[in-house]
Design a protein around this nucleic acid. Structure first.
Ligand code: SF4
Ligand code: SF4
Lengths: 137, 137
DNA sequence: GTTTAATTCTACCTTTAAGTAGTAATTATA
DNA sequence: TATAATTACTACTTAAAGGTAGAATTAAAC
């Protein structure tokens, strides 16, 4: 009942980047150091973020990563999607989900409300919301 | 963002057992067959359920498993606890949770409500509630 | 052009969850 | 007492996630 490591790292990376508005371009070495994420693993994650178009990479000397879109337009759910961690509409709490609407277990209806709250939270919170408070996550 | 396989299986097993009130004692072979869970894996899970005292096992010929407590007294969260899948009070949505109360990200407060709903749901739903509807989960 | 600081790629290693196999122990029943 | 049916135990294998290493590639700077 938790996000994958990759999602957690990705969120922390992007939130940190969003915080450093002044220095547009951030390199992997610094990110890994300050966020205490294994350098190579971070690089792997960054590559995925680039592939999916959230950030762009500038290769070569003086290179680094920067946002492709405004941080207010990048939602947490966009990040979770990449690592297949977002909550699908049809997802059962238990993860079982054979049961059809006709024959519901006691949890079925109770799950709707927290599910919607979570989806709303992930879909409506942008990186700008998460960062921009002067504190690291 | 999902329960482990073991938790899912355990819930399905116990829910099925709860449904079969007539035949008190259920054996692993039948459970594995009807629930379509690998026999050996099921046996392993059952051993854990026995260890933790949710069910008792009768060994030897004509043996099997039966509940130790009333199914109305076994809560979903009791099962999740066994496989370390329940939602801890201090658990952050993102799973990060370095952040103290002083410096909260935008998700921090939004997470409280769905978290409490989920905890309540797991803690207050018994096996009797989940089963007893004539449908398999 | 060469050097150098940076990203990217491919392939591998490690750890944990999931699943399997075989055998020992237990007990009702014939 | 022998047999068959059943759980318990120990150890292994497989699959997936998490993480690492090193070479290849890129492009600024000199
Ligand atoms: S009825 Fe229960 S087990 Fe089935 S899909 Fe709904 S919540 Fe999941
Ligand atoms: S502030 Fe955000 S990241 Fe930190 S513990 Fe709270 S929810 Fe988690």
């Amino acid at each position: 009942m938790q996000l994958s490591n990759s999602s957690q790292y990705a969120i922390r990376i992007l939130a940190y980047m969003a915080d450093q508005k002044d220095s547009e371009l951030m390199n992997a070495t610094e990110l890994a150091e300050v966020l205490d994420i294994p350098y190579k693993f971070l690089a792997k994650i960054m590559t995925e973020l680039v592939k999916v178009g959230l950030v762009v990479s500038i290769r070569g000397r003086e290179g680094g990563y920067k946002f492709e879109k405004k941080t207010s337009e990048i939602m947490v759910s966009d990040i979770l999607d990449i690592f297949n961690d977002s909550i699908k509409d049809e997802q059962c709490v238990l993860g079982i989900g054979f049961c059809n609407g006709m024959c519901k277990c006691a949890l079925h209806d109770q799950w709707m409300e927290p599910k919607h709250l979570l989806q709303k939270m992930f879909r409506e919170s942008s990186l700008e919301d998460i960062a921009g408070r002067g504190c690291k996550i």
